[in-house]
């Protein structure tokens, strides 16, 4: 049985959707953040699968870029979380309702 592009894509989709589930459902902002990292990795998987399929390495470069962005995002995002905790004494997003209209 051959492993094809479709296998990888479905796997990536499943992992991505688990990330979505985490983002939508969890209250803890740290876990939401980790779910976002999971989603980014799932996207990386898609990039690499297509690179493998097409036989080029441009996807690798883009994964590299995504990793950079993820690192930057983690730095800033965690900074925000720390600031949030400092001001609100909470890391639960349902307790932060400044956007309520």
């Amino acid at each position: 049985m051959m492993i094809t592009l479709t296998h990888y894509l479905i796997l990536a989709a499943v992992l991505f959707c688990i990330g979505v589930f985490g983002v939508v459902v969890r209250r803890n902002i740290l876990i939401i953040f980790m779910s976002i990292e999971l989603m980014l990795s799932a996207v990386n998987l898609v990039f690499l699968s297509f690179s493998r399929y097409l036989g080029t390495q441009d996807g690798h470069v883009w994964v590299f870029m995504v990793l950079t962005v993820a690192a930057a995002e983690a730095a800033v995002g965690l900074g925000i979380i720390v600031a949030l905790f400092r001001n609100k004494q909470t890391i639960y997003v349902d307790e932060v309702k400044e956007l309520k209209g």
Binding site: V24, V93, D94, V96, L99, K100, G101
Partner: peptide, 11 residues
């Protein structure tokens, strides 16, 4: 609809 909870917006 505007609960202020970002997750619901995401949902």
């Amino acid at each position: 609809v505007q609960t202020g909870v970002v997750q619901q917006y995401l949902l």
